[in-house]
Write a protein that binds this DNA or RNA. Sequence first.
DNA 1: TTTTAGCACTCTAGCATTGAGAGTGCTAAT
DNA 2: ATTAGCACTCTCAATGCTAGAGTGCTAAAA
Lengths: 342, 342
Amino acid sequence: MNKLSNRQQRILSLIIHEHIRSAEPIASNRLVNDYNLDLSSATVRNEMAYLTEQGFLRQPHTSAGRVPTEEGYRYFVGNLMRNTTLPEDARRTISHQFYQSRNDISNWMHLAASILANQSKAASLVTSPHAEQVRFKHLEMIATHSTQILGVLVLEGGEIHQNVFTTDVPVNQEELSRISNKLSTQFQGKNYLEIRATLDQYMDLEKTIVNWATLEMEQTENLTAGEVILDGLTNVLAEPEFIESDDARKALKMIEERTLLQDLITRSGFKDQTNGVQVLIGGEGTWDELKQMSIILAKYGLPGVATGTLGVFGPIRMSYGHSISIVRFLSSLLSDFVAEQW
Amino acid sequence: MNKLSNRQQRILSLIIHEHIRSAEPIASNRLVNDYNLDLSSATVRNEMAYLTEQGFLRQPHTSAGRVPTEEGYRYFVGNLMRNTTLPEDARRTISHQFYQSRNDISNWMHLAASILANQSKAASLVTSPHAEQVRFKHLEMIATHSTQILGVLVLEGGEIHQNVFTTDVPVNQEELSRISNKLSTQFQGKNYLEIRATLDQYMDLEKTIVNWATLEMEQTENLTAGEVILDGLTNVLAEPEFIESDDARKALKMIEERTLLQDLITRSGFKDQTNGVQVLIGGEGTWDELKQMSIILAKYGLPGVATGTLGVFGPIRMSYGHSISIVRFLSSLLSDFVAEQW
DNA sequence: TTTTAGCACTCTAGCATTGAGAGTGCTAAT
DNA sequence: ATTAGCACTCTCAATGCTAGAGTGCTAAAA
């Protein structure tokens, strides 16, 4: 693939710009008029012919304008996009919105999803931060009814797991507090293997509790993504390509059902790396269901300690610059929150 | 409005049935053939004319079949629908799915939403059970880093709130445990007003904690619906009426944004009461945005103690019998779970 | 050598026309 | 009370046509 001249790059950029705005094929004329180019439409046509030959543009039919191909978008994102950062006031507004909920993980995940969706006018996802190695912090057992106990397990980082037990004989709160205190002190900072190694020392209720705690910890550690929050699905729906195409609807359905997400999150992260943000355009040949969609993903958190993923997905024809800057900004913001808790 | 003859009722039923299946206008011919009616199409046509006059059917145009009106659906749901209960094996399968997660509120809410969506092939919502009067159960403070504390507040019913505090001076776990124990014993079973009345007795850290707890409790009590879980939005999207109409998409958007839900949940519950299940057809004249949609809602939980709402929303042309029976069944299932915890 | 004016060519979108078929409502016969 | 039969209405799909959009190419201009 040959290198593109400045003018060719410029024209490709403008076509993509205009097509993102209008969702229509772009004609040479339109380009010259709307952007006051110092060129005739004939010249533009020649360049467009070249770009088409190189695979960056395509023509729906002979007498139509040009539409960017996936390759075109990829070139744009990789080489032409100016590296937009979010304007200072937007950053401030967003940070401000988080101010109240910075201490509640579930809260800020929802908030982040909502901001991503609104700003990018696409659908968004946020997964809960996931510790690479789960460590015990604290345990608390609370008597609810006579033979019913509420167990609360706190992990390092502040994640909380809860469960209800039923016992054969009634237990009182004092007994439970004693057990909780003991175990909390003993297990402080340990991982689930270390705790499980001591399992034989316990009996009856204590054994049940210790067993439950290790199981919860093991499960948590092996989860790729705990909670996945989605928002803005209806944004994507209003886009013409989704109204028309059945494929696009299927893709959305798969995302709603979380079947694709797992795969996507683990297998992405190899290409088109733009400053920690990954851009998947049109399924990149790997995901057939995503032919019509683009996905912008970023990890957040402390690498090696606790990380989550967040991102945006919408039609291929999406505003990459803006979306990428939003994703990047939120990723760094949430990273700060994670750093505070871990 | 005159009473309908048996035959008229039968024909109305069949038209609705067939229209739900096919989304097309139904012709007299089709009815006679497909259902082996012992009548000629002419007779059916006469009856259809009458039903149209009475407002239960309408004709998109002269040479088209008939389509049920909102009034028609309402009559159907109110008078004609046979009271389906879910088959025993379906009940068992569903109960079984809940078996593992019956102790984790958040888990079974998600599960319920997913089952509702899949079974009804529409979108579903489940709100968290909400106590009429919130009562204190237990408090726990856990030292995380030197000046950072994780506060965990457990309410009766097992609802858990958490928050992170930062203090001026470092505190150790022993100190915190002492405070937690003391407050837990003192506040056991009290509501937020009772607790707040004692606020003056506390100072410094304790005061901060007590204040936080009462605020959390107050907020929780005044919330109409805490968490609202949505699922199956894309089911609805595949329906033809949503593909075509812009209104329908707007309605979905409002639901996704939760702006309508509040209103809906509080203001419904007056009409079309079918065994505890409320059926709103086409917005019932009150909600303009919902012209194209029907909503089936039910409360669950212990009335007067803790209740939540769950339901299904889809196109007017939805399978009411099945959806209602699913909603009803899940409502009773979740009620059992709530009863176990409160 | 690069750019551009000009023009022939291609394809689509929109419109009017048409005919077939779907489904009705009415009338008269059963 | 029901139904066969038929005239009537309206839609839908197909057809043919035209205007216009946009291109690619060629030859002239810069």
